[in-house]
Amino acid sequence: MKAAILVNLDMCIGCNACVIGCHVWKQNTEHTRVTVVTIGPAQSNGRLKMDFLPRMTEYCTLAECAPEPPCVSLCPVQALVCCDERAALEMLSSGERYQVSAVA
């Protein structure tokens, strides 16, 4: 079964701890394996909104890092979760604002 990293958009604040954590703990500064995308700020339904979405790049070694990748364990607000596909599907349909950051 594949592993997945999900992010809770209501919790991620775009602090880049995952990005730096991966660089430092995987001792890889050459390639960026995680990057945080900012969506917004923009008006939506009469409110200003902004989300942060950590995304794993083609260099991500999730299969090797699971079940405890440093990007996940170093998240200071526990916005990232590493789990298997089945758990991922459950969380994605839970009604909370989870998004897929990586599957491998």
Partner: peptide, 25 residues
């Protein structure tokens, strides 16, 4: 120093640290 993590049992940050601290080495 090969890496830095938050101290899980510390009363102040309860295991959480920021990007600055992770790369402090």
């Amino acid at each position: 120093i090969i890496g830095i993590k938050g101290t899980a049992g510390h009363p102040y940050n309860r295991g959480n640290i920021c990007a600055k601290a992770i790369t402090a080495a």
